[in-house]
């Protein structure tokens, strides 16, 4: 699926990522945790082809990623919806770019509107929606483009705790229906433990992969279960030293 080999990304004056190698398998849900400024977002941008690596390569299904491709569905924390388009207009955007016929893309959009639970809001504009609903649109829009890989950059970071928990459950429900690999950046260990098949902990800048945790707990997971707590504890410890490092720099 997604293969990242010895990836290094430098910006003027600093190194964001250093020698990162990672594989995301078919249908796998990978969460990336790390202190602020460790290059998590940069990693997603490179995977989407929005930036170019300084060294190293990325492959999606065996093909090298050079420049923007529409095979990755990006979901941003700030939703980034097109404010002049209605809910359905936003979700149709990807198929529209591909030249899909009007009635067909309507059908596709409707499918995802139902999937994310936005029926009845098709013709609302983004500013009329709550944060959680906006992100549902963002997720539906990414799915409607039929991506091979979902790239999510703290998608629930702007939501309140309750909506956040609800959206995590929703995301898993969707993800189980439409099994698409996901690379999910988050600051929340809880979130990662609840969602991920694997958790990648990154080090403070320059970002490298510090430790990878496999989580075999079957879904639906119980947030407060013994096993979840155990993993959370280990991840927190691993992350804690990095956050300490980041602060000392």
């Amino acid at each position: 699926m997604l293969v990242i080999i010895h990836l290094t990304k430098k910006f003027d004056g600093y190194t964001a990522l250093e020698d990162v190698s990672l594989e995301v398998n078919d249908g796998e849900f990978v969460c990336i945790l790390g202190p602020s400024g460790c290059g998590k977002t940069t990693l997603l941008r490179l995977a989407a082809g929005l930036d170019f690596p300084t060294k190293g390569e990325l492959f999606l299904d065996g093909r090298r990623i050079v420049g923007v491709n529409n095979e990755c569905g990006f979901v941003f924390q700030e939703y980034v919806l097109f404010p002049w388009r209605t809910v359905i207009g936003n979700i149709e955007f990807g198929p529209e770019m591909k030249g899909v016929r009007k009635d067909e893309r309507n059908r596709i959009a409707q499918h995802y509107i139902d999937l994310v639970g936005l029926r009845g809001f098709e013709n609302n504009y983004p500013h009329e929606l709550s944060g959680g609903m906006k992100q549902r649109v963002g997720i539906a829009r990414a799915y409607a483009n039929n991506p091979k890989l979902l790239l999510m950059d703290e998608p629930f970071g702007a939501l309140d705790a309750q909506t956040r928990n609800l959206m995590q459950g929703e995301l898993l429900r969707i993800w189980e229906k439409e099994h698409i690999s996901a690379l999910f950046v988050t600051h929340s260990v809880d979130e990662a433990v609840y969602l991920a098949d694997r958790i990648v902990v990154m080090s403070a800048r320059p970002g490298t992969i510090k430790e990878i945790f496999n989580i075999d707990i079957p879904h639906p997971r119980i947030r407060t279960s013994q096993e979840a707590n155990l993993i959370r504890d280990r991840v927190l410890k691993s992350l804690g030293t990095e956050i300490e490092h980041a602060r000392n720099k």
Binding site: L50, V68, G73, F74, V80, F93, M97, R141, N145
Partner: peptide
């Protein structure tokens, strides 16, 4: 907004 432009690109806009 640059983010909107990038979003459109990842959705396949030329």
């Amino acid at each position: 907004d640059r983010k909107l432009v990038e979003m459109a690109k990842t959705l396949g806009a030329n």
